[in-house]
Design a protein around this nucleic acid. Structure first.
Length: 373
RNA sequence: GGAAGGUUAGCGAAGUGGUCAAACGCGUCUGACUGUAAAUCAGAUCCUUAGGGUUCAGUGGUUCAAAUCCACUACCUUCCA
């Protein structure tokens, strides 16, 4: 089946939406946060732990799995769900982000993108058709169109040409896509220009996808205001009856601001990366457990948190693990940070139900930027 | 008793007349991270009121100039008695 989105409620004072997304592997309420497991694992966590925390969809990456272990091996294993033993829904990113993130030299032409493998330097060629073929074999629940994700610094003409090509690529993706159990999402680009975003959205929607994403907002050094504008420029042209996905965004404040502007689902590497780097989200802001002030702090990371890490371990202990480079520290903080974002979306859904989203945002921001730990 | 080698910042370790407040590594401290080339990367790490000040085991000397050369002292290591 295709994913089905049901709009349950519109928040009174914002564009916030409460909804439900039904997939081959379960049904979940939106707004929702999707943890990232690029290489068929959410780094340091087991699929069982991810499920237990209440996560729904997780991400995997077409480029990385194409390179290692190869889509044919995953196909032989019976698909990505079986391969990694995750029976929840999986969304595969197309490799489009790697067009942006991988080092030069890379060459983008109408046909596709020439990369150098980041593993062994092999010359690689990825096209919309190839990305569809790989994602088909991975057998994810949701496949993404192969797009160009241009840098935030790209100028207007570059963005315009790039997004027009991305639209042509989207059509090619749609034409070559043939997995009846998979859904295909289109991606809106256009940088921070209102007319480009609008154009990209309208043209992408014309192609009729199962869901729509806003891409290119979490690239390099753009400001939060620019990011929010890009959402505002895109969301009004996205159909109400399809899920809306803001790609790569996961900062707590950005999730709230995204929901306010009409976004349903988010993904981001940041909770797990921050965890590996020793940082933890708390209601009172992000803290760095490496800081010396936590040496003898025997309280939990966040007193309001009910996650496994907070229920059982102290800042002092986790700091020790992080400083000693023990992997358990990264695991505990990954559990905590993902849990934090899952709880955040839960609170957001409650706020939408009560038409209190703006109030919730203001309170959250006030507490988040006031040091109380 | 004799011979040889050694002593450099919190630790390890380069440096053997000026470009040396002294490479590099570790440790420590701080920061960054938004569709993961990221358990990574960047900065700071003698003191400072930021003008400077005081350093290379100690003391004395040579020199315009010493971590670097000389003398003695202390301590450490190895070898021979």
């Amino acid at each position: 089946m295709k994913v089905e989105y049901t709009l349950l409620k519109k928040e009174k004072n914002t564009k916030g939406r409460l909804g439900k997304i039904k997939t081959n592997h379960g049904e979940y309420e939106t707004p929702m946060f999707m943890p990232v497991g690029t290489q068929a694992t959410v780094k340091t966590l087991s699929p069982e732990e991810i499920k237990e925390m209440g996560a729904g969809i997780i991400l995997a990456n077409t480029y990385h799995l194409w390179q290692r272990p190869g889509e044919n091996i995953i196909d032989k294993a019976g698909g990505l769900h079986k391969f990694m033993n995750y029976d929840g829904p999986i969304l595969t990113d197309s490799g489009g982000f790697q067009v942006f993130s991988l080092a030069e030299p890379k060459n983008i032409t109408e046909d596709g993108v020439t990369f150098k493998s980041h593993i062994n330097g092999d010359t690689l060629f990825l096209t919309p058709e190839k990305s569809m073929e790989i994602q088909n074999k991975l057998d994810s629940d949701i496949a993404m169109c192969f797009d160009e994700c241009p840098p935030a610094s790209a100028d207007y003409d570059y963005l315009k040409n790039s997004l027009e090509r991305t639209i042509r690529w989207a059509k090619r993706c749609k034409d070559s896509f043939n997995n009846p159990n998979q859904s295909l999402f289109g991606i809106i680009q256009g940088g921070f220009y209102e007319n480009l975003r609008k154009y990209s959205a309208l043209e992408t929607v014309k192609l009729d996808f199962d869901g729509y994403a806003i891409g290119g907002v979490a690239n390099d050094n753009e400001s939060k205001e620019d990011m929010y504008k890009a959402i505002e420029y895109s969301a009004p042209y996205m159909p109400e009856d399809k899920v809306r996905y803001l790609m790569g965004v996961g900062d707590p404040i950005d999730i709230i601001e995204g929901v306010i502007r009409g976004v349903d689902i988010f993904d981001c590497v940041i909770p797990t990366r921050l965890a590996r780097h020793g940082h933890a989200y708390t209601k009172n802001g992000k803290i760095n457990l490496r800081n010396a002030k936590y040496k003898e702090d025997f309280s939990s990371v966040d007193k309001n948190c009910n996650c496994y890490a907070c229920k059982n371990y102290t800042k002092s202990y986790i700091r020790h693990l992080i400083v000693a480079e023990e992997t358990f520290g990264a695991r505990l903080l990954s559990i905590h940070n993902i849990n934090f974002l899952i709880n955040l979306t839960k609170e957001i859904r409650e706020a939408i139900k009560n038409d209190q989203l703006l109030k919730f945002r203001d309170k959250f921001i006030k507490e988040y930027y006031h040091e109380k730990n």
